[in-house]
Design a protein around this nucleic acid. Structure first.
Lengths: 119, 119
DNA sequence: CCGATACTGAAGTAGTTGCTTCACTATTAA
DNA sequence: TTAATAGTGAAGCAACTACTTCAGTATCGG
């Protein structure tokens, strides 16, 4: 069985700010994509990104604050992996807002559906 | 019945960049929230935001580029309303990436589920 | 021990962002 | 016509961002 979320995720404006800011940078999204294939050291993460190790470390701090990655240092190697908390908060935010928007769109009726098809 | 999406949404990196950047600002999110209650003119939108009309117009341009709002000028009034395209692109992006992450998390097994509970 | 490795911290920099003000152009109402 | 309204365009500015380099500090391998 999949581990469903039972506790509420606190999606404070600040948390959301951190999240969107973190995801707003292509390099940081590249880091996340790269971590999809598994946990990785900072230097290994930096290799194909075309930026310095320092830059990656800075990005990682931002991603960690947004709770999108979790890092842990063992010896001299810091291992990074994806953390689900941030993503869940983001999903929560979108879910909440979408329902509000959809409600509005329903009220507007078929009009927008048409316009959407045209695009 | 709700109008389901049948055509693919092009979630190019640039589109995603515009989206996250647009949503990364609290004032812009406030604008979106405000538009939930219905279409609105720029000046009416500006009223409770504590910024100048010019600032709001600038925000609206960014939101429009991200396809989160659609604006239309009739006479001297520009009416703004929420556009679903941007949001759908965002949802698409998250859905795509979540599946990749979940797959990874499955591989890691119970480990992260534990850690997640602890937090 | 000694050199290579893996980062960390501080400082600097070019470019971007969010905001302002001021001047200007429609458009609408009296 | 005139005056108020609604928004646009350009310029400027302080703060922030994504980098960089350089100088460390641990830690591991031989």
């Amino acid at each position: 069985m999949s581990p469903k979320i039972k506790h509420a995720i606190p999606t404070t404006p600040q948390q959301i700010d951190l999240l969107f800011h973190a995801l707003g940078d292509p390099t940081r999204r590249a880091i996340l994509d790269r971590l999809t294939s598994g946990p990785m050291s900072v230097s290994r993460l930096a290799e194909p990104l075309g930026v310095t190790l320092t830059a990656v470390a800075q990005h990682l701090q931002i991603l960690a604050e947004a709770r999108l990655v979790h890092t842990e240092k063992l010896g001299r190697v810091r291992t990074c992996r994806i953390e689900p908390v941030g993503f869940r908060a983001l999903e929560q935010w979108i879910r909440d807002h979408r329902t509000a928007w959809e409600r509005k769109l329903d009220r507007l009726g078929a009009f927008l559906a048409e316009e959407d098809e045209a695009r």
